[in-house]
Simulated scan of single mutants.
Amino acid sequence: MAHDIVFFLASDEETAAATYLGAPGRAFESVTCHFIEPDSVIVEWDMYSAAPSAEIPPPDQLNRWPWPNEVIEPENDGVEIFALPPRLARALARASSAELAELADRWTTRLRTADGDNMTDDGLLAVLQEVARLAASVLSTGGGLYSWSF
């Protein structure tokens, strides 16, 4: 089941966890993406940051990759909060425009393969560029990059 994701900056995991019931809202610098699985997109981006390639990883390789840490134990209400790995935040912050475009193309192709016409209408390159901007803020101000989804 796909979710709406809000990628956001928070000073620490405790602050990120406090968004549980109300979402990050306007109190946090954020970017939203619709109808995407949060944990698999984080894994997709992390795999790319470790070994950039336009090739889509096979599902079994994606499933063997370390999955993101949950900030809080999930309840039965569908809310999930994940911490993006610091190495991913660094990679996104330092990525060139060409690398972001290649990753966005790879991500789009994987989503189309999995979801067909039901994939998000969001401009995935624009989302990725905004998340990279947030990641750059993490490097300059500290804290972490998180995802909140429902």
Rank of each mutant, 00 (worst) to 15 (best):
M1P: 15
M1I: 11
M1Y: 15
A2S: 12
A2D: 12
A2Y: 15
A2N: 14
H3C: 09
I5H: 04
V6C: 07
F7W: 04
F8W: 00
F8K: 04
L9Q: 04
L9I: 02
A10S: 13
A10P: 09
S11C: 02
D12S: 06
D12H: 03
E13I: 03
E13S: 11
E14P: 00
E14F: 01
T15A: 09
A17L: 02
A18Y: 02
T19W: 06
Y20G: 02
Y20F: 13
A23T: 01
P24A: 03
G25S: 03
A27G: 11
A27H: 10
F28H: 15
F28P: 07
E29R: 15
E29L: 08
E29D: 13
S30G: 04
S30Q: 08
C33Q: 14
C33V: 14
F35D: 09
F35H: 06
I36R: 15
E37W: 11
E37G: 12
E37T: 15
E37Q: 15
P38F: 13
P38C: 13
S40L: 13
S40W: 13
S40P: 02
V41L: 12
I42W: 14
E44F: 04
E44K: 10
W45A: 13
D46N: 14
Y48T: 03
S49C: 09
S49P: 00
A51L: 06
P52E: 04
P52S: 06
S53G: 08
I56P: 00
P57M: 02
P57C: 10
P57A: 03
P57H: 12
D60I: 05
D60N: 05
D60S: 03
N63R: 15
R64P: 07
W65I: 00
W65G: 06
P66L: 07
P68A: 03
N69H: 10
E70M: 07
V71F: 00
I72A: 06
P74G: 05
E75F: 15
N76Q: 13
V79L: 05
E80F: 10
E80I: 15
I81R: 01
F82Y: 13
F82R: 03
A83K: 09
L84S: 14
L84F: 11
L84A: 08
R87K: 11
L88H: 14
R90W: 06
R90N: 09
R90L: 02
A91H: 09
A91C: 05
L92P: 03
R94M: 04
A95D: 00
A95C: 03
E99H: 00
A104I: 11
D105L: 06
R106Q: 03
R106P: 02
R106Y: 05
T108V: 08
T108Q: 15
T108I: 13
T109H: 04
R110N: 07
R110Q: 14
L111N: 14
R112M: 13
D115Y: 15
D117I: 11
D117V: 05
T120C: 11
T120P: 10
D121H: 03
G123C: 15
G123T: 13
L124I: 12
L125T: 07
V127P: 08
V127I: 10
V127C: 12
Q129S: 10
Q129R: 13
E130Y: 07
V131N: 09
R133A: 01
L134C: 06
L134D: 12
A135V: 08
A136T: 08
A136H: 05
S137Y: 07
S137L: 15
L139P: 11
L139Q: 12
S140Q: 11
G142W: 04
G143C: 02
W148Y: 08
S149T: 03
